[in-house]
């Protein structure tokens, strides 16, 4: 099944045959600041909730950027940032069997758990 699409999708953006989607999306650009996920605690007593993502050179900058980008309207009392590459996700339901079943399940790996020094050979 193939679709022919040459519509102006959102309002007046001109459609162009070689738009953003047509380039390879797997190349890595080493000059780009890493991507971070931002979590905000909106008030004391609540969980941190995912707010979005941003780019920053390091964790300190990510926190600062998160403050500037995601709390401009005083949305939070506490911020967490984690580099996006460290987020492991579960697989979506119906296509699960198609994915490498172990790939996104870091918790199955024993090294995922930091045990105290005394507990050896577990």
């Amino acid at each position: 099944m193939s679709f022919q699409i040459n519509k102006l999708y959102y309002g007046d953006y001109g459609e162009s045959k070689n738009g953003a989607a047509d380039i390879s999306t797997n190349q890595t650009n080493t000059a780009e600041w890493p991507l971070w996920e931002v979590f905000i605690r909106s008030k004391q007593g609540l969980d941190h909730k995912h707010a979005g993502s941003l780019h920053a050179a390091d964790a300190a900058m990510a926190i600062e950027n998160a403050r500037d980008v995601y709390t401009r309207r005083m949305e939070g009392v506490s911020l967490w940032v984690v580099e996006s590459k460290h987020i492991h996700a579960s697989n979506p339901d119906e296509a699960g069997s198609l994915y490498d079943p172990a790939h996104d399940k870091a918790y199955r790996h024993p090294t995922f758990y930091n045990l105290p020094e005394e507990v050896k050979y577990m």
Partner: peptide
């Protein structure tokens, strides 16, 4: 991470980026 038709993905990338 859900399965999606390639054209859907491309359409979205194009629309969102624009």
């Amino acid at each position: 991470k859900d399965w999606m038709p390639e054209k859907y993905r491309q359409t979205l990338i194009r629309q969102i980026s624009q």
